[in-house]
Design a protein around this nucleic acid. Structure first.
Lengths: 248, 248
DNA sequence: CGAGGTGTTGACGATGCTCAAGGGGAGTGG
DNA sequence: CCACTCCCCTTGAGCATCGTCAACACCTCG
C-alpha cells in the first residue's frame, strides 16, 4: 500500500466514520481495498446508459453528475456528486446501467471492482450496511429533487439546489463559512432542475438582486443563509447527515 | 407457521426468485420470517415523514404511495407500490423517515421488524443483496420519474406512468393481456407527475380520443401498447425486470 | 486574435395553472 | 327506496410561469 493509496481511501473511511466507529479490522479492510486511480478530463463520460460495468468509482476530487437522455434528446441530471461519493455504486447489484455518469470538472476517481466490493461486504456487515445506506441517501436525494421539480417554482428550486450543495460540501469539509466552489454552469442547473438555461439566468439574476446569493466564476457565496433556506423550502433531513442530528 | 403466514411470504419468495434460485436454507429463512399481518383502510398513512420506525412493511394486497409535502402544502408522490413491494425498506438504514407512506386502496400489509431483517441479511448475503437491489430499483424508478417530470410534457408523462404501472403489475402477475387494475385517481396522478388535476383530466381526455387508453372506474385497458410506449418514451430497462432480459 | 462556450437580455408565444361551476356515481341514512 | 352527500370527473375562460428564438457581451484558451 503506497502513500497515495492510503490517502485516497481516507476519504471513504472518514465518510463511513460519520455513521459509526470502525473496528481496526474494518478499517484495515478499507485501507487495503484495491483501487485504480484515474484522472478524467471535464465533460467526459465515465460510464454510459446501457453499459454493464464490473467496477464502481469513488470520486476523489472534482464534480460529476449522473444523467439520462430522453428519446427526443433532452437531458435530465439526477444528481451532482462531490468528493467522497460513489455515483455508480448501484451497478454492484443492477447489471445494466440505466443512466450515464459524466464529469463536470476535471476529476480524480478511484475504480473499485465489484468483486472486491462484494468480498468486503460479505465479510463486514456494517460496511455493507454503510454502502447500502449511501445508495439509500441517493434515493432520498432523488425524492427531494423530484419534489422540487414537480412542486416548486423555478426560484425556490434553484435556491434549494444551492442549499443542498452547500450542506453536502460542508459535510466533506469543502466549505468556508457560507462560501464554496460551484463549478456548475447555468445550463447544467437547467438540466438538473427541469428549466431552460435562459430562465435559470433570469432567476439567478433575481436572486442576486434579492441579495440571496453571490455567484461569480466558479464560486458561490451565500450572504443570507436563513433567507435562502426559507426561499428554497430547504430542510436538510433528507440528506441524513448524522453530524447534523448530533449537533442538534 | 400457519397457512396464512406461508401464503404471505410466498409473494416475497417469488419476487426474489426472479433474480436467482434460492437455496433450501435461504428459502426456509424467508418462510419463517416473522411478519405481523395488518389490514389498513384506504387513504390512511402507514408511516409519516419524521417517524423513526423499527419495522418495514411488505405490501400483500392493494396499492400504496410514498409522498412528501412541501412547505406550502403541495404533495409530491414519489412512487406507487403494488403487492410484493416494500415501500419503506430504506428505514432499515435511515433512522428518520424523510417521506410518508399512505394507502391508495384498502391494503393488507405485513410488518417485519428491522431486527429480523438485520438477522436475515447478516446471515444470508444473497438475500441482503436482493433487498439492497430492491431499494436500488426504487432509486432507478425515482430517476425515471424525475426525468419525466423534468423533461417530458404532460401527455408523454401520463403515458409513461401508464406503461410503467402495466409492466410492474405484469411482473407480479396482475395483468390480463393489456388490462389491469388502476385505482389511482386523477388527483393522485397529478400529484405524482407534477401537474394539476384539471390538466390531467384534459390530457386523459386527449389520450382517450387518440385511442391510446381506456380508463374507466378502476380499470385501465391499453388497446395499442406500442403506440402508448412510443408516446410515453417508455423504455423498461430502468425497472430491471430480469424476466425481460431473459425473454429478450 | 479568433473561436467557442457561457452568461445576459428582449420580445413573443405556449404549455399548463387558477378559478369556477356543474355532472355523475357510490355509499349512507332516514 | 329515495334523498342527500361527498368525492371524483369534466369543462370553460382567462392568465402566468416559463419556453423559444434571437442577438450580443464576456471570458478563457489555443
Amino acid at each position: 500500500m503506497d502513500a497515495t493509496h492510503q490517502f485516497t481511501t481516507a476519504i471513504l473511511i472518514r465518510k463511513l466514520e460519520s455513521s459509526f466507529t470502525l473496528t481496526s479490522d474494518e478499517r484495515q479492510a478499507l485501507e487495503t481495498l484495491p483501487m485504480q486511480i484515474t484522472a478524467i478530463k471535464e465533460g467526459q463520460d465515465i460510464v454510459r446508459q446501457g453499459d454493464r460495468p464490473s467496477r464502481s468509482c469513488l470520486i476523489l476530487s472534482g464534480f460529476t453528475c449522473t444523467y439520462k437522455m430522453t428519446g427526443d434528446g433532452k437531458r435530465q441530471i439526477h444528481n451532482f456528486q462531490i468528493p467522497g461519493d460513489i455515483p455508480d455504486l448501484q451497478s454492484l447489484h443492477l447489471k445494466v446501467l440505466d443512466n450515464s455518469l459524466g464529469t463536470i470538472t476535471p476529476c480524480s476517481v478511484g475504480f473499485i471492482t465489484h468483486e472486491d466490493l462484494h468480498k468486503l461486504c460479505k465479510r463486514h456487515y456494517r460496511i455493507a450496511s454503510a454502502f447500502w445506506r449511501e445508495t439509500l441517501i441517493d434515493g432520498a436525494v432523488f425524492r427531494e429533487w423530484m419534489t422540487s421539480i414537480g412542486q416548486r417554482e423555478a426560484y425556490p428550486r434553484i435556491a434549494h439546489l444551492m442549499c443542498e450543495m452547500l450542506e453536502r460540501l460542508r459535510a466533506v469539509g469543502l466549505v468556508n463559512g457560507y462560501s464554496c466552489e460551484f463549478p456548475i454552469t447555468q445550463s447544467e442547473i437547467a438540466d438538473a432542475l427541469g428549466i431552460t438555461p435562459v430562465h435559470v439566468n433570469r432567476v439567478v439574476k433575481a436572486m442576486r438582486a434579492d441579495g440571496l446569493i453571490e455567484l461569480k466564476g466558479e464560486r458561490l457565496n451565500i450572504p443570507d443563509w436563513e433567507t435562502l433556506k426559507k426561499a428554497g423550502d430547504f430542510d436538510p433531513t433528507y440528506l441524513h447527515l448524522e453530524s447534523h442530528q448530533a449537533a442538534a
